Amino acid sequence: SEEKKKAKERLERLGASSELARELLDRANGNAEKAERLLRKLL
């Protein structure tokens, strides 16, 4: 979806690899905010 694509791009801008961004979104069930929080914990 367009929303998921935007979320993935945002995670990548924050420093996630394409693969990591995809994994985070999967774990967050597509929830962009939750995926971002997970990423911030990792960085």
Rank of each mutant, 00 (worst) to 15 (best):
residue 18 S to Q: 10
residue 9 E to R: 09
residue 3 E to R: 11
residue 7 A to Y: 07
residue 14 L to R: 04
residue 30 G to Y: 05
residue 5 K to G: 10
residue 25 L to I: 08
residue 20 L to A: 04
residue 11 L to I: 04
residue 38 L to R: 05
residue 25 L to W: 02
residue 41 K to S: 12
residue 21 A to P: 01
residue 21 A to H: 01
residue 39 L to W: 04
residue 12 E to P: 01
residue 14 L to S: 03
residue 34 K to W: 14
residue 11 L to T: 00
residue 4 K to Q: 14
residue 20 L to C: 10
residue 27 R to Y: 12
residue 8 K to Y: 15
residue 38 L to V: 07
residue 3 E to S: 12
residue 2 E to R: 11
residue 8 K to Q: 15
residue 40 R to W: 06
residue 18 S to F: 03
residue 19 E to M: 06
residue 11 L to W: 04
residue 2 E to N: 12
residue 24 L to M: 06
residue 28 A to I: 02
residue 23 E to I: 14
residue 19 E to K: 09
residue 9 E to V: 08
residue 35 A to L: 07
residue 17 S to E: 03
residue 32 A to S: 09
residue 4 K to M: 15
residue 7 A to P: 05
residue 28 A to E: 05
residue 12 E to K: 08
residue 43 L to E: 05
residue 16 A to N: 02
residue 25 L to K: 01
residue 19 E to P: 03
residue 29 N to K: 10
residue 28 A to R: 00
residue 14 L to C: 06
residue 2 E to S: 11
residue 40 R to V: 13
residue 38 L to K: 05
residue 28 A to L: 07
residue 12 E to F: 00
residue 14 L to I: 07
residue 28 A to Y: 12
residue 34 K to S: 10
residue 20 L to V: 07
residue 25 L to T: 02
residue 43 L to K: 05
residue 7 A to T: 07
residue 19 E to S: 10
residue 41 K to L: 13
residue 11 L to A: 01
residue 35 A to T: 01
residue 28 A to T: 14
residue 39 L to S: 00
residue 23 E to M: 09
residue 39 L to R: 00
residue 25 L to R: 01
residue 16 A to F: 02
residue 22 R to V: 14
residue 22 R to C: 13
residue 34 K to Y: 15
residue 31 N to K: 04
residue 8 K to I: 15
residue 40 R to E: 15
residue 26 D to E: 14
residue 36 E to T: 04
residue 29 N to C: 12
residue 28 A to S: 10
residue 2 E to L: 13
residue 21 A to L: 06
residue 17 S to P: 06
residue 34 K to V: 15
residue 15 G to K: 02
residue 36 E to W: 01
residue 38 L to G: 04
residue 43 L to A: 05
residue 42 L to A: 07
residue 41 K to Y: 10
residue 36 E to G: 03
residue 21 A to V: 07
residue 23 E to S: 08
residue 27 R to M: 14
residue 15 G to V: 04
residue 19 E to L: 06
residue 43 L to H: 06
residue 24 L to H: 00
residue 25 L to Y: 03
residue 8 K to P: 03
residue 42 L to P: 00
residue 27 R to D: 05
residue 9 E to G: 07
residue 37 R to S: 14
residue 31 N to A: 04
residue 40 R to F: 05
residue 39 L to F: 06
residue 43 L to D: 05
residue 24 L to D: 00
residue 7 A to L: 11
residue 29 N to T: 04
residue 39 L to G: 01
residue 35 A to W: 03
residue 33 E to H: 09
residue 41 K to R: 11
residue 17 S to F: 04
residue 43 L to M: 10
residue 20 L to T: 05
residue 1 S to D: 14
residue 1 S to R: 12
residue 35 A to P: 00
residue 31 N to F: 04
residue 30 G to I: 02
residue 29 N to W: 07
residue 22 R to E: 15
residue 1 S to Q: 13
residue 42 L to M: 13
residue 21 A to R: 01
residue 26 D to H: 08
residue 37 R to Q: 15
residue 25 L to F: 03
residue 42 L to R: 03
residue 18 S to H: 08
residue 6 K to R: 13
residue 33 E to K: 13
residue 24 L to K: 00
residue 5 K to Y: 10
residue 10 R to G: 06
residue 37 R to C: 13
residue 13 R to H: 10
residue 30 G to C: 06
residue 2 E to Q: 12
residue 28 A to C: 14
residue 39 L to E: 02
residue 20 L to Y: 01
residue 27 R to P: 01
residue 22 R to T: 14
residue 32 A to F: 15
residue 41 K to F: 09
residue 39 L to I: 01
residue 27 R to H: 08
residue 6 K to N: 11
residue 19 E to Y: 01
residue 4 K to F: 15
residue 34 K to T: 13
residue 6 K to P: 07
residue 25 L to S: 03
